[in-house]
Amino acid sequence: MNRYFKSAYLFGLLGGIMGLISFIVLTFLREDPTNLNLIFGYVIVPISLYLALRYFKDYTNSGYISFAEGMSVGFVTYMFIALLSFVGIWLILNLSPDLFELIKASKVQALIESKETIVSQVGTESYDATLESVQNMVKTDIAINDSIWKIIPGLFFTIIISIILRKNPN
């Protein structure tokens, strides 16, 4: 079983580290690094998944990979990326409470600036509930949100890449 996940751990670790590096770099460049970090996640996750699945196929499994093997290796890879992202961002925000307050203020300000548009689309009650939710946000919320946005595209890209790389020994 370990041979199935060697590449998943390796490239999951690489993807998680790259995600944290992007968060740290964006922290110095922007007030709220979370939104742009999600975009970098959409690049990092599929690249890490492709490398993990390709490595597994070429170097661990004699040039073959089934859809099920691809899904298994991909699942471990994107979950590892999400877990590292969660822990890293949570630690960064706990070590830098000022950064958390800047992110929170930026999100509240964005909601206030977009109030008319949001109210016209979803109504006043939904806007007020969202504003209250953002004002009550905690550090874990930011880390969980980033992790979720690594898992969702991770599943999507795992399916696609597993189909593309699939080659059975028959």
Rank of each mutant, 00 (worst) to 15 (best):
L29D: 09
G19I: 00
I65Q: 08
I44C: 04
L51E: 08
F23G: 05
F11A: 01
R54D: 07
L29Q: 14
G12L: 04
P46T: 03
I17L: 15
Y64F: 15
Y9L: 15
F67A: 03
Y64K: 10
A52M: 07
G15E: 03
L10E: 02
N94K: 13
W90P: 02
Y59T: 10
L10M: 14
F23V: 07
F80G: 01
S66L: 05
G63V: 11
L10G: 03
L26N: 13
T34A: 14
W90L: 13
L29K: 13
N37R: 08
S62P: 01
M71Y: 10
A8G: 04
A68E: 11
L102N: 14
P33W: 09
S22G: 04
G12A: 10
A68M: 12
P33N: 12
F11T: 00
E31S: 12
L20I: 12
L95V: 05
G74L: 05
I92Q: 05
T27W: 09
V45E: 02
F100I: 08
N35L: 13
G15W: 06
N2F: 11
A82I: 00
L51G: 06
S72R: 06
Y64H: 13
V76F: 10
R3K: 15
E101S: 11
L14I: 15
K57N: 04
G63S: 10
F56V: 03
T34W: 00
E101Y: 09
T77V: 05
S66P: 03
L29W: 11
Y4I: 08
N2I: 12
R3A: 08
Y50P: 01
A52K: 03
R30F: 15
